[in-house]
Write a protein that binds this DNA or RNA. Sequence first.
DNA 1: TGACTATCTACCGTTAACGTAAGATACTAA
DNA 2: TTAGTATCTTACGTTAACGGTAGATAGTCA
Lengths: 154, 154
Amino acid sequence: MSIDYLKIGEVAERLRITVRTIRYYEEEELLEPYRTPGGTRLYSEQHIARLKAILHLTENGFSLDVVRLIGKTRESCATGNEGSKEVSNIIGNSIADIEEKLNNLKALKSELAAAKKQVEKCKGCKNTPSSKGCPKCPVNKNLNKIEILNLVWE
Amino acid sequence: MSIDYLKIGEVAERLRITVRTIRYYEEEELLEPYRTPGGTRLYSEQHIARLKAILHLTENGFSLDVVRLIGKTRESCATGNEGSKEVSNIIGNSIADIEEKLNNLKALKSELAAAKKQVEKCKGCKNTPSSKGCPKCPVNKNLNKIEILNLVWE
DNA sequence: TGACTATCTACCGTTAACGTAAGATACTAA
DNA sequence: TTAGTATCTTACGTTAACGGTAGATAGTCA
């Protein structure tokens, strides 16, 4: 085989994903590798770069549909300004989504951090948990102050 | 019906979720509402607070299994230090997950922002897209500099 | 040239988090 | 009381993103 291209198994190993995943992205028309006359798939560095980009997005919670949208870039770039604007908007929306996620995660993080501190303060009371909470336990005493702790089971 | 409790439809409306979702969380033993003698579910503010907490977590990419884990707080708090430590670790792991997500999202955001700028610079060349890219188009010229743009379709 | 391993296509299976529908029962307002 | 709406249980359906298998073919190495 030419040294310039990788077969699917090699790509899978290099990117630490399964061959099934790679074929799946092809089924979804996110990628189209070369083929040998016999039908074996061959991947260039460009193909691999695109795979990396797809993984980068999916690992951050974006669906393949969104990936597909973002991928329209070049097509629209080659068809004039209007298309570019559309793509710009699509990417802009993705950025907005990310910003929302960032804010939510930051809030959640501080809530969890507060909850963790409370849990660590708790020395483990032996009282039967009541609906009012154990009066000696800071976790239960502060039940209403830390919303995340409303998750506590009864 | 007592004014203190809400029925499932009212809760669903208030939290902007479906009744099916609420019942599903109950199937998953994440929540156990009161019942009227006839079997109709009744929710207190505590129940609703827990529902909010569950949603807060799931909306940020956590699975119900993780939610269940975090929810062990009180149980372990009532059984001594060891349990508390376990819960503290579970929450600690969740925080670590969040930090990783935050870093990834930040990186992705700046990549997308860079990509967006490139797209906006592109005035829309009429050239047929070649494997080398359109020479007049900054998007294609900088193809290798902005990895996310390797997503471009051909 | 054989033997062995990798890939191919085609297709059914899986999991999480619900959606949806049916038929029965409960609640509520007039 | 009764008509109308909400809820109940049960159970099968759905979607995304793959997993796994079978039987056939391709690539590779001594």
